[in-house]
Computed example of a mutant assay.
Amino acid sequence: MAAQALARLPALGVLPGGMVFEPKYDGYRLLVFVHGGEVFLQSRNLRDLTGAFPEIAEAAAALGEDVVLDGEVVIHTGGRLNFSALQHRLNRRPATAARLAVEQPAHFIAFDLLEHQGTNMMTWPYAERRAVLESFFQGHGLHSPWQLTPATTDRDLAEQWLTEWGGLGVEGVVAKGSEQPYLAGQRRWFKIRARDTAEAIVGAVTGPVSSPNTLLLGRYTRAGRLRLVARTTPLPLALRNEIGPLLTPAGPSHPWWSMRLTVTWGNRELLAFTCVKPELVVEFLADTAIDSGRWRHPVRTQRPRTDLGPADITPSD
């Protein structure tokens, strides 16, 4: 079951049976299957991740009973969730995955129970599945690498998670209906991302420089290198016309002149862009999914900041 994005917490009564809120984590969605002592860890796109997270697979085998759990696998480093560390687990040899499991152990944050001891619970209301999930954790005395996600009906607490937990790697909040069954493949939950404003330097654009379609944003490192930190969503017409006259095309001396980018992550089609002189600062709105100083998802341009210069922007490292 998946979620559709909303800009803010939904109104009460939108979901059946009242609203329940859970944190949305910066990790990999994972289904844990345990049947007859065999364990299978599956990603949301049906990929086998059993070998990537041997500590989770070992803990699942130790449960000693058939179960299907839905949740998120995460890695904590430096007091926050580390998505890059998760990516380093993929396509590794068993010995390497085992070493990483010791150096940076993963945790599984459970938020749903889909099957237990041969009983398919997907048609059960969320509230009943949640009650059995809590009993399951208590009955087994589960601890690391297992975690049970917090859940609340308190809208004010959910707002607090949105505003205060972003720096810890919590991307936002998921809203669920307490009477909802588990509808696999359907976007019947809601997700609300925590967002913050930030500034960066326009280093390149797609489309014409005079009226750009999107912006490629950078920040200088402490060593003086202009580093790509974000791409924007398409600009509305008013912003295109406002930003275009403030940009100047750049030549081969631009640090990104020979840089190669793909249109989207996982796509081989190269992105066509034009370098501009890194002089204009813009303010943007972004979620809290940041990997080593780079925003993972496209950001939304708010306005040009002609009152700021590149030297006013915090270095990227």
Rank of each mutant, 00 (worst) to 15 (best):
A3F: 00
A3E: 01
A3Q: 00
L6M: 09
P10C: 05
G13Y: 04
L15R: 00
L15N: 01
G18W: 07
F21W: 01
K24R: 12
K24E: 05
R29S: 14
R29W: 11
L30Y: 08
E38P: 09
F40M: 13
L41M: 08
R44M: 14
A52Q: 14
P54N: 06
A57R: 02
A60F: 00
A60H: 03
V67K: 05
D70N: 07
G71A: 11
H76I: 15
H76F: 12
T77D: 14
T77W: 02
R80W: 01
L81W: 01
N82H: 11
F83Y: 11
F83C: 06
Q87L: 13
R92D: 15
P94K: 03
D112I: 01
H116I: 05
T119L: 14
M122R: 13
T123A: 15
L133I: 00
S135E: 14
G139T: 04
H140W: 12
L148T: 01
D154C: 02
D154N: 08
W165V: 15
G169F: 01
G172Q: 06
G172S: 07
A175V: 06
S178L: 06
E179V: 09
R188T: 03
F190R: 10
R195I: 06
A200V: 10
V202I: 13
G203M: 07
G203Q: 04
S211K: 08
T214V: 10
G218T: 12
A223G: 06
L226F: 04
R231F: 03
L235G: 02
G244M: 02
P252H: 10
S253M: 14
W256I: 08
S258I: 11
L261D: 11
T264Q: 13
R268Q: 15
L271N: 04
T274V: 15
P278I: 13
P278R: 03
L280G: 00
L280H: 02
E283C: 00
L285W: 09
T288D: 11
I290E: 06
D291V: 10
P298K: 03
T306N: 10
D312T: 00
S316M: 09
